[in-house]
């Protein structure tokens, strides 16, 4: 049996809101240690992995490992209408493992709304251990998420693809669209401690800009974001969720390759 409780204004729900423009259904696995969500967009270009340890929830109980396909779009839609200070409880039982029950309790505890959400069948993916994957990357950029968001906003003025390349002591974002081009150089400053650009080998990736903008939205939930690039490999965008939590979200974005 699984039971987890969270307040409506929790980061978990904000994150679900933020990933909804990419995915509507997700594979959610729960164990005694926490919750793991994995999802891929309809075109198979972007992959999202979200990890939230059990202690981040107001209440968390899972006595048996569970894996479920959840229409998170429908779930968020239902929760949106709840009072902002309301408490949300999500339950799944072993006896009837075809749906989950989501209950919303008002702050005064005088009103409870419950709805049952049918689980969906999802194809599961085998993604290698992400931390191991990150160690192999040619270049990593740790930067304040406000910088990342600002760069993505600049880039969104050009409709097309973005090339992210390593340059001497930094990286370069270059977008070429119908109306012109845009070039952003992001360098390692001498004194800043919240920027760390490490380049093991030169690398350049071409990526679809619209996904970058979706990633920027989620990075708003964190102070820092980390981009990892490797030749011919998906871009990895990683950020912790919130300030003092061990929750984290990782995006993989498949590059454009010579056809």
């Amino acid at each position: 049996m699984l039971e987890l409780k969270l307040v409506k204004e929790s980061l978990f729900l904000n994150v679900l809101e933020a990933i909804l423009d990419l995915v509507a259904v997700a594979s959610v696995s729960c164990s005694s240690t926490g919750l793991k969500l994995q999802a891929m967009d309809a075109k198979g270009v972007a992959f999202i992995s979200l990890l939230i340890p059990a202690k981040e929830f107001q209440f968390y109980h899972c006595d048996k490992d569970l894996s479920m396909g959840i229409a998170i779009g429908d779930m968020v839609e239902a929760i949106r209408s709840a009072d902002k200070d309301g408490t949300i409880t999500i339950k799944a039982s072993d006896e009837n493992f075809r749906n989950i029950t989501v209950s919303i309790e008002s702050p005064e505890c005088n009103e409870t709304t419950s709805f049952s959400l049918l689980l969906v069948t999802l194809k599961r993916f085998c993604i290698p251990e992400l931390q191991g994957l990150l160690k192999k990357y040619d270049a990593c950029v740790q930067m304040p998420s406000v910088d990342f968001m600002r760069i993505c906003k600049y880039l969104s003025n050009v409709d097309g693809d973005v090339d992210i390349s390593t340059i001497d002591k930094g990286i370069r974002f270059f977008a070429l669209g119908k109306c012109g081009c845009l070039n952003v150089k992001y360098m390692q400053p001498e004194k800043a401690t919240d920027i760390d650009i490490s380049v093991q080998a030169p690398v350049s990736l071409t990526l679809d800009l619209k996904y970058m903008n979706s990633f920027a939205k989620v990075s708003a939930l964190s102070n820092q974001v980390k981009l990892c690039l490797s030749k011919g490999q998906p871009l990895v965008v990683q950020c912790k969720i919130g300030q003092k939590t061990k929750s984290r979200i990782i995006y993989l974005l498949a590059p454009k390759i010579k056809g």
């Binding site: 891929m40 075109k43 198979g44 270009v45 972007a46 992959f47 194809k123 599961r124 993916f125 085998c126 993604i127 290698p128 693809d161 071409t206 679809d208 490999q233 998906p234 993989l252 498949a254 590059p255 454009k256 390759i257 010579k258 056809g259």
Partner: peptide, 14 residues
């Protein structure tokens, strides 16, 4: 031209 690759090009479906 370049074409969009997919995540499954890099990771095997379980």
């Amino acid at each position: 031209g370049r074409k969009q690759s997919t995540i499954t090009n890099f990771f095997v479906r379980a």
